[in-house]
Each structure stands twice: as structure tokens, then as C-alpha cells.
Design a protein around this nucleic acid. Structure first.
Length: 722
RNA sequence: GCGCCGGUGGCUCAAUUGGAUAGAGCACCUGACUACGGAUCAGGAGGUUACAGGUUCGAGUCCUGUCCGGCGCGCCA
């Protein structure tokens, strides 16, 4: 983009003038943007702090620099303003032509970045908290790809944890009436209920998203299980049994065989086979994963690889990491004290943990079982390409294709059909591979996980450092964001919709927000909310269509608006602020919302449509640039033009700070500038050919820019009409 | 107790990371084209940026302290 380079060149010229005029070296000269367009296009406040150094007034310093600096050709003139700001004015015609010339994106490929996001426990439906994770993660992926990085997207599947086990406990041991109620089944015979569950698992593919999928059944089962644990010791004991069976694995057992075995055990009263339990758990996890993929596909979110925890266990990732940690002297076996019998990593020398009471982190329990953090260290080392075997090769997974997918446009839904993109999953057989695909071994790794995971994330990062990989530790980045909670109004709304009560106290309902909890079943399911959004959008479209009637492509338009509203809502809020979810706010389509942005782009489509019909002219073509005569570009048009040129600067800033509210604010500003111009600068009725051409050119630039920022970067579709 | 994050008009949020007059949206009030769609626009009202000190040409932003709210600090995952 020309603007970034003009800024850099101007700054360099200024630094050179500082050197020649004042013998002053400053290698951090940078230009800002004045608060007001009349003040100029770029500004340098640097004369103010130099006043004392040079014993001259800041204005005098700025005057000299304005005069003596060898400004780039694109700078039209320079002014000194206020207490000593140096304001630069660009040559509008030159910049405008450069922007019209430049193509949208520039791709070169830098070192591989890994972004891990979504990571939903595969034991229940996704809720809106997970959407924040996926939207932020996916936006990061899009922005880094836009900046020319190769990005690999990982969605980690915790398929062997207690949470999956809990659902299996529910299926096998919940009292039959409870289970029947959770499943909404007629029968109360467990063998038939198991059959019911297996039917709901679905076929071996990513389903069409709905609110009656397998993950929705689990959403009902899971809270009933956790609710019963404290009340029934026998039942609670089943958890350890199931977990144990899951860890032992199913040894390749067929699902039908497992179901037959489980049902047989119910009828005969025998105990369940461990292998059958493990097989069922695997099927539960995988079915949930497919449901989650379907949910995220609605938002245009896709992945490259699904690393499975079971494969990390079976392929000895931890065992290898354990050896590396021992070799490096990073961990020690405690022989006495409260951690006796545990392998611990001492963090006492790490500044990040300086003021902790107990700076030791247990990685292996006294019973010999690795902790979650231990596994995570092994996984992180693999992601960074640092999990090496003794012979120097990388310790790796086996891989196979999980699905293939297609996307008709950058912000359209992902379709899991025969497609040219492959979604891989890890396997426990290292001999398996997908030709042409390699995973892991990234230079920079982003872990998108909410802020509550900060402590374990810090431990993982520190382990990488202690192993002697300081720079890799610096490139292990925890992309932390605050949780999504529910306003009391939202809680009441869900209770009303579902006819259930969460039984929250008056005290809890008096707070600003209530934390969601899959364990308690408190939450707004992602698919359910997307359905509500789409229905609301469809109503709005129908209402506005009036006599024209319902358009043929209503579902597509409604989906676009729903996705736009949701993704913008998630992107615009700064990440370290709790998102207190409120239906009324989330369903708003006017004001500072996604649809407002989309509408600005739709309006440009309409202009060009009418223009073609009445005057035979379409969007501005690059070949017309020579015909743009040197008419004065008025301030308001110029402001929009200039903002259109700031994309890369904003994207870089957003990526550096992991703060997409900056990008959201920028695109909102663009749309707002356009909407204001829209009324004062008509195109179709304008008879002055030069003026019309200028406006066509500006609005074409704007439309192209919106398409890139909304669709490519934010994943917000731009519909033809709405 | 220790640590991290937040506190900005009635409400929800921004603020180019130390720059010029603290900006948007919602809600409220007054208005707008028989020109490209009113999911829009023009205008009005609404602020001691929680509080108290400090740093400097300049502080919502940095430092110290206080108050309020949230989260984290497991041989859980």
C-alpha cells in the first residue's frame, strides 16, 4: 500500500533533516494522523520534546525542518501548526491514482504461523463463548494470511478427558427416566436408549447444522450427570471406571460390535466391556467434533488439522518431552514434602513467576500419570518443531484426511463436500501420511484460549524457555481474551424460550453478568443463536421488501446478515473486556453493527446497477485513470480516499496487538464516511461527466476496499442486496 | 494473601499505545430528498475519563496509593 511507504519515506526524510540541521540522531521518527482532516494528512509532533534539547521554540524547529527536509514527491505542502506540530498535506490526485492502480492484496509467503483455536470439549454443543474464540482466532488467521504469512489452523480435540467420559457415564448409568428425558425419547429401556443415542451419532460426515444434532443431546445429558455426582456415590464411582476404560482404548473395535455388546450387557445384567465403552466414547467425541465443525462452517470458519489428545498419548509425545525435560534438568523428582513422589518443574528462577508462593508446577503426579499441563508442553513443543527424537528427527503424528471442503467465497459457509481443501486429523499410526501435507513445526504459535487459562499457558511457555529455546518461547503467544457471560436479561430470555429454570439466586441475578457453564447447562447454544439471528434477519428483510415481496434468495441474505452481525459484534469489542451477552444488543441491525457495514457496500452495488441501466456506465475501470482530469478533490471525498489507503497499517497494528477492535473501528469509520457522502454526492443524476467520473472512482475504490476488509479479513459476507 | 484484567455521558463500547477540541452506537429531542433504497443522513442535549497524588511541553493512556467489580493462583481438565 502506498500510504505506509509514503509515511516511512517521509519519516526517513525527516530523520535525515534532523541529522543535517541539528546533528540529532533519531531512528524512531514516526508520523501520526492529525485528529482533524483540515489540519493535514500526516503529522509529526516530534518538535515539541526537542525544544529543550535544541534550546529553540518547537515552532521554530518545525519551521526549519519543514523548509529543509527533502520531502517525497507525494507530499504537496507542509505546515506548522499549534504549539509546533508539523503537518503534511499529500498530493491528492497522485495518491488517488496510486490507490486506484494498486491491486487488493499482495501475497508472498513468510515462515509458517500456527494458530490454534476453537478447541471445544467434544462432549456438548458449542455455545456463544466458543464463538468468541473461533471468531477471534479465524480473524487472526485471515489477517496474517492477508499480510503474506503461511498460516496453519489447528483445532485441538480433547477426546480422552473426563468431560467426554461424563457423557458416556450418562448414557450407560443415568437413571433411565432421566436419560429418556434428556434424549426426549418415548422409551425408558436403557438398551433402546443406547440405540437412540447411536442413531443420533449420525453418519460418518459433517452434518447440516441444526439444533437437534447429537451435540444437542449431549448438551442435555451432561448437566444431568454432573448434577447427580454429588448426590450418588455409586454413580460418581462410574466416572473413574469409564475414564479408565477410555484411556485403555478400544483396540480397533467396530462401533456396531460395541453397541451390540453394550446392549447385550444391559439385557443380561453383565458389566460393560471396557473396549465397548472406549469405542462408544470415541464415537461420542467424534460425533461432537463433526457437529462443531458444522456450526463453525456457518461462519465460514475452517481448519487444516485436528490434533487428537488420544494420539498424543498413544504416540508417546509426553514420554519424549519427559526425557527432554529430564535431560535439560528442567524437572526433578520430589522425595519429600507435600509434592513427594511427583515430578515438578521449578519456576523459581523465572521472572514471570517471581512472586508466587509456590513456584513449583507438578507435571507428573505421584501415581505416575501426567497432568494436563505436561501434555500441553509436549504438544507445544511439537507445534514449535522442538519435539525431537534422539536421532534428531521430529516426533510426529500419523495423519489421514478427515474431510474435504469448499468455500465459494471468503466469507461464505464452508461446505464439507468433495472439495479441494483437506481437513486432516491426526492418527496413532505414524506410517500414515497425507501426501503434500506437513503439520506442526511452526515458527510462531498462537494459542487462542480465554484469559482464565493464563497461568497454565505461562507454565507451558516457561517450559519451552527452560528447555533452552528462549526465542521459541517468545514466539509462543497466548492470545487471551475475556469470557463471554450472560446478562440477567439474557438468562431470563433463555429460561423463557426453553421453559426451564436455572435456579439462580437473586444475588446472582442482580449482578451485571452471569458466567456460562456447560456443566450446569447455562448458556446460549451457538446454533440456536445463529438460528435466532437468521430468523430475525429474515423478518427484517421481508418487512423492508414491502410490496416487492419475499426475495428468492431470502435464506442466503438472512445468513449473510446474521453472520455479519455476529462476527462484527465479536470483533469490535476489545478482547480483554468481558462480553456480557444481551439478545437485544446482539440482534440489533442498525447503528454500529455488521449490517450497517454491509448496507454501505450494498448501496454501492445499487449505484452501479442504476448507473448501468440509465447511462451504460459501471464501476470505475483502471483504464479510465488517464481520463480523471485534475479537478480539485474536495475534503470529504479526500478523507474517504485516504482512509481507504490505511488498510495495511491498521491490519498490522491489529495483528501486533491482537486487537481487532482497531480493524472494526476502521471499517466502521469507512462505512460512516461513505454513508455521509452518499447524500451529498449523487452519481447517477450528476450530468457533469468529470464530476460523475470522480465520484464513480471514489465509490469504486470504497466498494473494493469494503469487500476486502469485510470478506477477506473479518469474514463478513457482502450480499448483493439485503 | 499474591497476581492479572477492567472502571470513560442514562446504557453498550472506541480512542492511532504519551499528542491537538475524549469519539461512536443505543435511548431521548428536532429535522431531511417525487435525485443512487430511511438497515441512511443533518442537528440538539448529555463528560471533573472511579478517587488522590506524581512524572512532562503535553496524561483516559505512564508511576504510586486507595476504592469498586471480575478472573486466576489444584497431584481438575
Amino acid at each position: 500500500m502506498p500510504l505506509t511507504t509514503i509515511r516511512e519515506r517521509s519519516a526517513a526524510a525527516l530523520a535525515a533533516a534532523l541529522q543535517s540541521q541539528f546533528d540529532h540522531t533519531d531512528d524512531d521518527v514516526s508520523l501520526g494522523i492529525p485528529p482533524n482532516r483540515e489540519m493535514g494528512d500526516l503529522a509529526w509532533p516530534g518538535a515539541l520534546p526537542l525544544a529543550r534539547v535544541f534550546k529553540k521554540s518547537p515552532r521554530a524547529i518545525a519551521e526549519i525542518l519543514a523548509e529543509k527536509t527533502n520531502w517525497p514527491a507525494e507530499i504537496d505542502h507542509v505546515e506548522v501548526a499549534g504549539p509546533g506540530f508539523l503537518n503534511l498535506f499529500l498530493d491528492r490526485g497522485v495518491i488517488f491514482r496510486q490507490l486506484l492502480e494498486s491491486s487488493g492484496t499482495e501475497h508472498g509467503f513468510g515462515p509458517k504461523t500456527i494458530v490454534e483455536h476453537t478447541n471445544i470439549n467434544p462432549n456438548k454443543a458449542a455455545h456463544i463463548g466458543h464463538l468468541r474464540n473461533s471468531v477471534l482466532g479465524d480473524t487472526l488467521v485471515r489477517c496474517r494470511r492477508h499480510l503474506g504469512h503461511e498460516v496453519e489452523v489447528q483445532n485441538y480435540i480433547d477426546d480422552t478427558g473426563v468431560q467426554v467420559a461424563d457423557v458416556v457415564v450418562g448414557i450407560l448409568y443415568l437413571p433411565e427416566p432421566d436419560l429418556a428425558a434428556a434424549l426426549g425419547a418415548e422409551t425408558a429401556r436403557r438398551d433402546e436408549l443406547i440405540g437412540h443415542v447411536v442413531m443420533a451419532l449420525g453418519e460418518d460426515k459433517v452434518p447440516q447444522p441444526s439444533t437437534t444434532d447429537f451435540d444437542d443431546l449431549c448438551w442435555e445429558i451432561y448437566p444431568r450427570v454432573t448434577h447427580l455426582y454429588p448426590e450418588d456415590d455409586d454413580f460418581a464411582g462410574r466416572r473413574a471406571e469409564v475414564l479408565h476404560a477410555v484411556e485403555a482404548g478400544c483396540d480397533g473395535m467396530d462401533l456396531d460390535e460395541a453397541v451390540f455388546s453394550l446392549q447385550g450387557s444391559v439385557i443380561s445384567g453383565e458389566i460393560f466391556s471396557d473396549r465397548a465403552i472406549a469405542r462408544l466414547a470415541g464415537a461420542v467425541a467424534e460425533s461432537n467434533v463433526r457437529c462443531h465443525l458444522a456450526t463453525m462452517a456457518r461462519l465460514g470458519v475452517a481448519y487444516d488439522v485436528l490434533p487428537h489428545e488420544s494420539d498424543i498419548l498413544h504416540l508417546g509425545f509426553w514420554a519424549r518431552a519427559f526425557e527432554l525435560l529430564k535431560e535439560a534438568g528442567a524437572i526433578r523428582l520430589e522425595t519429600d514434602g507435600k509434592n513427594s513422589g511427583c515430578w515438578v518443574m521449578s519456576l523459581v528462577d523465572s521472572p514471570a513467576f517471581a512472586d508466587m508462593d509456590d513456584p513449583d508446577k507438578i507435571l507428573v503426579r505421584s501415581n505416575g500419570i501426567v497432568t494436563y499441563t505436561g501434555k500441553d508442553i509436549a504438544y507445544q513443543l511439537w507445534k514449535l518443531g522442538l519435539l525431537t527424537d534422539p536421532d534428531g528427527t521430529l516426533h510426529d503424528f500419523g495423519y489421514q484426511s478427515f474431510a474435504t471442503w469448499e468455500q465459494s467465497a471468503p466469507a461464505e459457509p464452508v461446505r464439507y463436500i468433495e472439495g479441494r481443501h483437506t481437513l486432516a486429523r491426526t492418527t496413532s499410526n505414524r506410517a500414515q501420511a497425507i501426501p503434500g501435507h506437513a503439520f506442526g513445526n511452526g515458527r510462531t504459535v498462537f494459542n487462542v484460549i480465554d484469559v482464565r487459562q493464563s497461568y497454565p499457558q505461562k507454565v507451558v511457555k516457561e517450559a519451552v524457555r527452560i528447555l533452552g529455546h528462549a526465542s521459541a518461547a517468545d514466539r509462543s503467544i497466548h492470545f487471551a481474551y475475556e469470557m463471554v457471560a450472560l446478562t440477567p436479561a439474557a438468562i431470563r430470555e433463555i429460561e423463557k424460550r426453553s421453559g426451564k429454570s436455572f435456579g439462580l439466586s437473586d444475588e446472582q441475578m442482580a449482578k451485571a453478568y452471569v458466567e456460562m457453564s456447560g456443566r450446569k447447562g447455562i448458556g446460549v447454544k451457538a446454533d440456536e443463536f445463529l438460528d435466532i439471528l437468521e430468523a430475525t434477519a429474515a423478518d427484517a428483510i421481508t418487512e423492508r421488501a414491502g410490496e416487492a415481496g419475499v426475495p428468492d434468495d431470502l435464506p442466503h441474505r438472512a445468513r449473510s446478515i446474521a453472520v455479519g452481525a455476529l462476527r462484527y459484534l465479536m470483533a469490535k469489542q476489545s478482547r480483554n473486556r468481558v462480553l456480557a451477552f444481551d439478545f437485544e444488543e446482539a440482534l440489533a441491525f442498525e447503528g454500529d453493527t455488521g449490517p450497517y457495514l454491509q448496507y454501505s457496500a450494498v448501496r454501492t452495488n445499487k449505484i452501479f446497477e442504476k448507473l448501468r441501466a440509465r447511462r451504460g456506465e459501471g464501476p470505475f475501470e483502471r483504464t479510465e485513470i488517464p481520463e480523471l482530469v485534475d479537478t480539485e478533490i474536495p475534503d470529504d471525498l479526500w478523507t474517504l480516499i485516504l482512509e481507504c489507503g490505511r488498510r495495511n497499517e491498521i491490519v498490522m497494528q491489529a495483528v501486533d496487538n491482537l486487537e481487532f477492535s482497531l480493524l472494526a473501528a476502521h471499517v466502521h469509520n469507512l462505512a460512516q464516511l461513505f454513508h455521509k457522502l452518499y447524500h451529498g454526492h449523487p452519481v447517477v443524476p450528476e450530468d457533469d461527466e468529470n464530476l460523475r467520473r470522480l465520484r464513480r472512482a471514489v465509490f469504486t475504490l470504497f466498494a473494493d476496499e469494503m469487500k476486502i476488509v469485510l470478506e477477506d479479513l473479518l469474514g463478513i459476507p457482502v450480499p448483493e442486496e439485503m
